[in-house]
Structure formats: C-alpha cells, structure tokens
C-alpha cells in the first residue's frame, strides 16, 4: 500500500480520528550534513587566510619556523578553548579562564615551587587550575550561582591573587627541563612538543564529547536540563565536572605558557576568556548550550591565531587586529545562522 506524499512536519501534533498517517520519509539531509557544511566553510576561511598570508608575505608566512610559531601560539589558547567548549555546550560559561591561567602560571613559578623541579611546576599548575575549577563548579552547581557571576568573581580574585604572589614582577623559570621543552631541539619530527600536547588534548576532548557518557550528559544538560534530570542524570555533579575540566585545561595551558615564555607573570592569559569563547562560538558551539564541536573550536582557534600572525607580519597595529577579530566573529556567526536556516528549510 502506498501512502500519500504528505511529509510529516513539526508543529503538527495530531490529525483527526480514523485516518492514515502521513508518510514518514523525510527529505531533509542527514543530521551530520549541517555540521559538515559548517566545518567545511571554516576550513575554507582558514584556507583563504593562509592564501592571504602566503600572498602578502610569501617568504615569512610559509616558513617552517613561522608555521611552528603559529601552531605553538594556537596551542595555549587552544587547550583553554577545548575546556571552554565543554562548558558552553552544557549551557554554562567560564569567564575566569584567563585569570586561572595567570594564577596557575605564577603559582607554579614561585621560587618555592621551582625547587621541586619539572614535576613541581607541572603539578602546581594543574592543581591550581583544577582547584579554581572546583571553586567555580561548587559555587555554580551546588551554590546555585549563575555561571556568569561565579566565574567573573573568580576572574577578579584569581587575578588579584596572581598579582599578590608576584607583586607585579616577572618570575623567571630556572628549571632547565621545563625550558628545554620550548627550544627547537625538542621538536619531534619538526613538531613542537606544545603542539603535540594540544593535539592530544583536542583528540581526547573530541573522544570525550562524542564517544563517552560524559559527552552525552554534557549535551543533555545543555540541551534540556530538565530532561537530563528526569533521565536520571545528576545534573549538578555533571556541571561541577565541567568546570573542573575547564580548570584542568587552564592548568595545562598555564604550564604550556611557562614553557613558552620561560616565566610566570600575573598578566598571563589576558583576555583568554574572550578568545576562547569567540573561537568556540565561531566553531559552531551553541552559546545557549546543547550543541558543541571540538573540531569547530580547533578551526576557530587556528583562524584567530593565523589572523594575528598575518597582521603581525604585515606590521599592522594590534588595535586593527582587535577590530578585525570582532568583524570576523560577527561575520562567522551571521554566515552560520544563514546556513543553519537554509539547512532547516524554514
């Protein structure tokens, strides 16, 4: 028996009694298609930027050392962005990431910490990050604070504490094993170790979001917290874990920054929160939660870092850079909205 060609649409709950149901075949594309279009368009933007860089500064831009530099710079903010992507996917926000990076980096480079060598620095950086994430998470998940407020409070206090520890001075790292990670000789097959760390974080982040119960729960909490609760998910615990994860990423990023700069400063990680949020949103993670993409965030970070690099190579002021970044955020989000709407056919 053939059915009439009446595609079932949303917003149509029920028909009158005693009738045949509409056919269920839906012509719309598979769920992955939309995401692929978005990822492809981001790849296109990145390719265009690389073309611009290659055309304006052919010698410098495509030099191996410059590409290594771009990737290394992307690595630090990239690790922070992975954590941020999880938080935003769950419907939250973490404005304190830059401040946590600063606090972690200075705490891990105090004279006392440096006595414990490589392990001491790494452990302290990660522990301080996780500790700050714990405070954020407890306040938000169990204290019922709005993420915006709780993390802005953390931003202020962590920056303050970082200033307190350093007294505004740059803390030089004297542990050679840490510094060695940042020099050219440490490169593995031409890839700087920090970039490898970033690659591992991205891979793990992708697995965590797309292949584990943790990822499902994150999406559920962001997409429909009440449904998540009724499905037996401990929504509060999940929220706590997410801020812990973000803190952990900040700790790792702080360590990377220590390696990169050979020092710890209370001004480290300035405006990281904005860059990380922007990269995640450009990548296609929904600010209202329920949808997140690690691949998109990766591309978002690479796009930003490449722009910065191209501007620097062309001797343009950082003020101009900021304006361009803002314009790109607006453009990317507008384009995404359009593709989304067309993809849905409404």
């Amino acid at each position: 028996m053939t059915q009439p060609a009446t595609p079932a649409r949303r917003n149509d709950p029920a028909g009158p009694p005693k009738t045949s149901p509409p056919r269920r075949g839906d012509p719309r594309a598979a769920p992955g298609a939309r995401a692929d279009v978005r990822t492809l368009s981001l790849l296109g933007v990145l390719a265009a930027l690389i073309a611009v860089g290659g055309l304006t500064r052919p010698e410098e831009f495509l030099a191996t050392s410059n590409l290594q530099l771009v990737l290394t710079q992307a690595s630090v903010i990239g690790v922070v962005t992975v954590g941020m992507t999880f938080v935003i996917t769950s419907g939250g926000i973490d404005l304190s990431v830059g401040a946590i990076v600063a606090l972690s980096s200075v705490w891990a480079t105090t004279v006392a910490t440096q006595e414990y060598g490589f392990t001491g620095i790494l452990f302290t950086a990660v522990a301080v990050g996780v500790g700050c994430g714990l405070v954020n998470g407890v306040l938000i998940a169990y204290g019922g604070m709005v993420p915006f407020i709780a993390t802005i409070a953390m931003l202020a206090s962590a920056r303050g504490l970082a200033l307190q520890i350093t007294d505004g001075k740059t803390q030089i790292v004297t542990v050679d094993s840490v510094l060695d990670l940042g020099v050219k000789d440490a490169n593995i097959l031409g890839v700087p170790p920090l970039v490898l760390v970033f690659a591992v974080v991205v891979a793990l982040g992708w697995l965590l979001l797309n292949r584990t119960t943790f990822g499902r729960r994150t999406l559920a909490v962001g997409g429909n917290p009440e449904a998540a609760r009724l499905a037996g998910i401990d929504v509060r615990r999940q929220r706590l874990y997410l801020y812990l994860l973000s803190g952990l990423c900040c700790g790792i990023a702080a360590f990377m920054l220590i390696v990169l700069s050979g020092s710890g400063q209370n001004t480290n990680g300035n405006l990281y929160e904005l860059d990380a949020i922007a990269a995640a949103i450009i990548g296609g993670t929904l600010l209202s939660g329920g949808r997140g993409t690690i691949a998109g965030s990766l591309l978002g970070v690479l796009i930003f870092t490449t722009i910065t690099n191209i501007f620097a190579l062309n001797n343009l002021e950082s003020a101009v850079q900021q304006i361009a970044k803002g314009a790109i955020i607006v453009a990317a989000v507008l384009v995404q909205h359009r593709t989304l709407r067309e993809g849905r056919g409404t």
């Binding site: 769920p31 499902r216 429909n224 998540a228 499905a231 998910i233």
Partner: peptide, 22 residues
C-alpha cells in the same frame, strides 16, 4: 522530555548508555 541536540539512540539510552569501561 527529549534532548533535541542528541540522536534518537542517544536519547533512548540517556542516563543508562551501554558502555565499555563505564
């Protein structure tokens, strides 16, 4: 009480997904 951003299978098993290593 469904999560729109998750697939049908994910929604059905939400909160009690079949897992390896938990």
């Amino acid at each position: 009480d469904l999560v729109e951003g998750l697939s049908v299978a994910d929604n059905i098993h939400l909160g009690h997904e079949p897992t390896t290593a938990g």
